[in-house]
Design a binder for these strands. Structure first.
Lengths: 119, 119
DNA sequence: CAAACTGATCGACGTATGTCAATGTATGAT
DNA sequence: ATCATACATTGACATACGTCGATCAGTTTG
């Protein structure tokens, strides 16, 4: 069950904070599906690799080696991240370039509660 | 593999933001394990039920029916949440009372990036 | 002590998921 | 056209995980 299109369209429309009110089953399933995407080491590493790449974008060809997985596995995870709205893919020639969608991460962060008191 | 004690002791010591620098395999595994705990609808509902309970605490006996799972399943999920440091358990007589540990959730939220600009 | 109740543990089962090798499919170069 | 490259897709496999029924353990009441 990899149909993790967690409502990628309305990027602000999701998930009241977990601590505010009891979630119903539907809300909980959506939020859980979103967190499931982040609940894998390879995907977290790929996400952070793209995020910290020069220019904010990274070529898939530069991800396979640092993440230590096979090329098909990387391709699989990138597809999951794109489908979840956390990454954008742009194909240039025979290369695939990825960029993070920070607003999407922000939605998940906000679901964990009110903004933190950062120093 | 339910050994999800994601370093429950040093509650502030975890996980540089995903977008800041590339995560190594170890960091990624820890963060992924933490998110995995949140990546289940039943656990999210239990968490939100406890969070929004009067007095900030809830008895396990009041969670089984609203979450729509069997008693053993609820007990299992509560154990996972406690082990991850997201909940505290206190046994009173034959009842088990749970309280959320907001600092723990804050750590995960911060891992998703800098504090958001809430309106 | 016996009975009742709350919650934890165990065992089993079905499904989901991460991984890779093999293969397919565009795109660019010779 | 032919070949090489970059990435996606497929198939298979092992493991992880959510779920429940049955049972166990501790506590309170009669």
């Amino acid at each position: 069950m990899y149909d993790l299109r967690v409502d990628v369209k309305p990027i602000e429309t999701c998930c009241s904070p977990v601590l505010t009110a009891p979630l119903d089953e539907r809300e909980a399933e959506e939020l859980a599906a979103a967190f499931k995407v982040l609940a894998d080491p390879a995907r977290l590493r790929l996400l952070s690799l793209v995020a910290s790449a020069p220019g904010g974008e990274a070529c898939a060809c530069d991800l396979v080696e640092p993440v230590g997985r096979s090329q098909p596995t990387v391709s699989h995870h990138m597809a999951v991240l794109v489908e979840a709205g956390l990454l954008e893919r742009e194909k240039r020639g025979r290369w695939a370039w990825y960029r993070v969608v920070p607003e999407r991460l922000a939605v998940l962060r906000d679901a964990l509660g009110p903004g933190s008191a950062r120093s």
